[in-house]
């Protein structure tokens, strides 16, 4: 009855379509750009670069320019101060993108790498310097807890680091989980991003990551990584953009980018690897 009352009231005052209307002649300027993403890790065996094309935010983009599909036919290279290496397109559904083995590039601490992408008349490039190995994971402490009731237990790992004085320390915590198959062998690793931190003097003597859940019958590898300001900025702004979507009271969010001529992130992570058990 109350809904009927409301609908009648709305109907009398116009109709429900009154409140949200399409702006028919909206002209939002659009310039196509390349969106490039990679996270270079010396500890990984493969370098993967994801390349997409932006699509207009308003209107119907051409089918090949939806903004969602991996761009094929792009020229992607990674270069250091001495050499340039071309990347090739991989169709592995889990690691789709332009790839090259790290055995060829040999990413190293302190190395400065530029990822360049050319597609049609568009170019984009991003540069990153991989942090030094020294001090990564300094003062690492990992505590595991078990919580639960009624026979159900949840294991969690709490990771913290020493926080060096200064303002320019950035960290990632990644979690590689491999489930045991029924035959006792390990399945493919599933990597997730647990947390990121900007270590500053004001945040205290230790930095605490968010806890992560350790599922049973799995192998857990933690990657405690030092990263760049651009990486943390990208991740923070991206999360904020997602939280603010559809919220008229929030400030429109610009996702951070360090890619010249395009969008995205050319980031890196210098990691210390630690296995943990529930």
């Amino acid at each position: 009855m109350r809904y009927l009352t409301l609908l009648l009231a709305l109907g009398m005052m116009g109709c429900t379509e009154f409140f949200i209307q399409e702006i028919a002649d909206a002209e939002v300027p659009f310039i196509p750009q390349l969106a490039v993403f990679t996270l270079l890790q010396p500890q990984d065996s493969l370098i993967v670069v994801d390349v997409r094309l932006t699509a207009p935010a308003v209107g119907s983009p051409p089918p090949d320019r939806s903004g969602r599909d991996l761009v094929s036919g792009a020229q992607v290279t990674i270069s250091d101060s001495l050499q340039t290496f071309p990347l090739t397109l991989s169709t592995d559904p889990l690691r789709a993108g332009y790839v090259i083995s790290n055995d060829i590039v040999r990413l190293r601490a302190g190395g400065r790498y530029t990822v360049s992408v050319t597609y049609e008349d568009l170019t984009a490039r991003g540069t990153v310097t991989i942090p030094p190995e020294h001090g990564v994971g300094e003062g690492l402490e990992i505590a595991t807890t078990e919580e639960g009731q009624n026979g159900f237990a949840e294991h969690r790992a709490w990771v913290s680091l020493l926080n060096p004085s200064g303002e320019e320390d950035y960290y990632l915590l990644l979690h590689d989980r491999r489930s045991y198959r029924s035959d006792g062998t390990l399945g493919r690793p599933e990597r997730s991003l647990v947390d990121w931190l900007h270590g500053r003097t004001v945040t205290g003597p230790r930095l605490h990551f968010l806890p992560l859940t350790l599922a049973g019958r799995s192998q857990h590898l933690l990657r405690i990584c030092r990263t760049t300001a651009a990486t943390v900025s990208y991740l923070s702004s991206r999360d904020m953009a997602r939280a603010n979507t559809g919220n008229p009271f929030a400030e429109p969010t610009q996702v951070s980018s360090n890619v010249e001529g395009g969008l995205g992130l050319v980031g890196c992570a210098q990691c210390r690897l630690v296995y943990v058990k529930p």
Binding site: V28, P29, F30, I31, P32, Q33, A35, F37, T38, L39, L40, Q41, D44, I47, V48, V49, D50, R52, L53, T54, A55, P56, A57, V58, G67, R68, P93, L94, R95, A96, G97, L174, E190, R191, S192, L193, R238, A241, R242, T245, P252, Q254, V255, L263, G264, L265, G267
Partner: peptide, 30 residues
């Protein structure tokens, strides 16, 4: 004046590793 997105693009949740993706808006100017 207000800020509206000019373009949209797809981004991986974890660059270079998983293929789980999200759509992001890009605002050319405020």
């Amino acid at each position: 004046p207000t800020t509206v997105p000019n373009s949209i693009y797809s981004a991986p949740v974890l660059p270079g590793f998983t293929n789980t993706r999200i759509d992001l808006d890009h605002h050319t100017e405020r």
